[in-house]
Computed example of a mutant assay.
Amino acid sequence: MKLTKLSIIIPVYNEAATVRLILDKIKAVQLINNIEKEFVIINDNSQDDSKKIIEKFIEENPSLTIIFHQHSENKGKGASIHTGISMARGEYLIIQDADLEYDPEEYNLLLKPILAGVADVVYGSRFLDKKGKRTSYFWHYNANKFLTFLSNLFSGLKLTDMETCYKLVNTKMIQSIQLTEKRFGFEPEITAKISRIKDIRLEEVAISYASRPYNEGKKIGWKDGVRAIYCILKYGLFRMN
Rank of each mutant, 00 (worst) to 15 (best):
Ala116Arg: 14
Ile67Glu: 01
Pro62Gln: 07
Gly217Arg: 03
Tyr214Thr: 14
Leu64Gly: 00
Lys219Ile: 02
Leu153Phe: 13
Leu128Val: 10
Gly76Phe: 06
Asp103His: 12
Glu187Pro: 02
Ala28Ser: 12
Ser211Glu: 14
His82Cys: 10
Tyr166Ala: 14
Ile32Thr: 14
Lys112Ile: 07
Lys145Phe: 06
Thr171Met: 02
Tyr235Lys: 10
Ile197Met: 10
Arg212Tyr: 08
Phe127Trp: 12
Asn33His: 09
Lys158Cys: 10
Asn241Asp: 11
Ser63His: 07
Pro11Ala: 06
Phe184Leu: 10
Gly90Trp: 01
Leu157Thr: 09
Lys145Glu: 07
Leu147Trp: 08
Asn45Pro: 02
Cys165Gln: 08
Ser63Asn: 14
Gln47Asp: 08
Pro104Tyr: 05
Ile232Glu: 07
Glu91Ile: 05
Arg134Ser: 15
Leu21Ser: 13
Ala16Cys: 11
Met173Ile: 10
Ile95Arg: 03
Asp44Gln: 06
Asn45Met: 06
Leu157Trp: 03
Ile194Asp: 00
Phe238Glu: 00
Leu233Trp: 06
Thr83Leu: 05
Tyr166Ser: 13
Arg239Trp: 07
Ser151Pro: 03
Thr18Ile: 04
Asp103Pro: 01
Glu181Phe: 04
Leu64Met: 02
Gln70Lys: 09
His82Val: 04
Phe138Glu: 13
Gly76Ser: 04
Tyr92Ile: 08
Leu110Ala: 07
Val226Ala: 10
Thr65Cys: 03
Asp224Ser: 15
Asp161Met: 05
Ser176Gln: 09
Thr180Ser: 15
Leu202Trp: 09
Asp199Lys: 12
Ala206Tyr: 11
Leu128Gln: 09
Lys131Phe: 13
Glu189Ala: 08
Leu202Tyr: 05
Val118Lys: 11
Asp224Trp: 12
Leu6Trp: 02
Tyr214Arg: 15
Glu73Met: 08
Lys167Val: 12
Phe154Ser: 01
Gly225Trp: 14
Leu93Ser: 10
Asp224Gln: 13
Ser208Phe: 01
Lys2His: 09
Val19Arg: 01
Thr160Arg: 13
Tyr137Glu: 15
Ala16Met: 12
Ala210Thr: 10
Asn144Asp: 11
Asn215Arg: 08
Asn144Lys: 04
Leu23Ser: 05
Leu100Ala: 03
Gly132Leu: 06
Glu187Thr: 08
Val121Pro: 04
Lys158Glu: 14
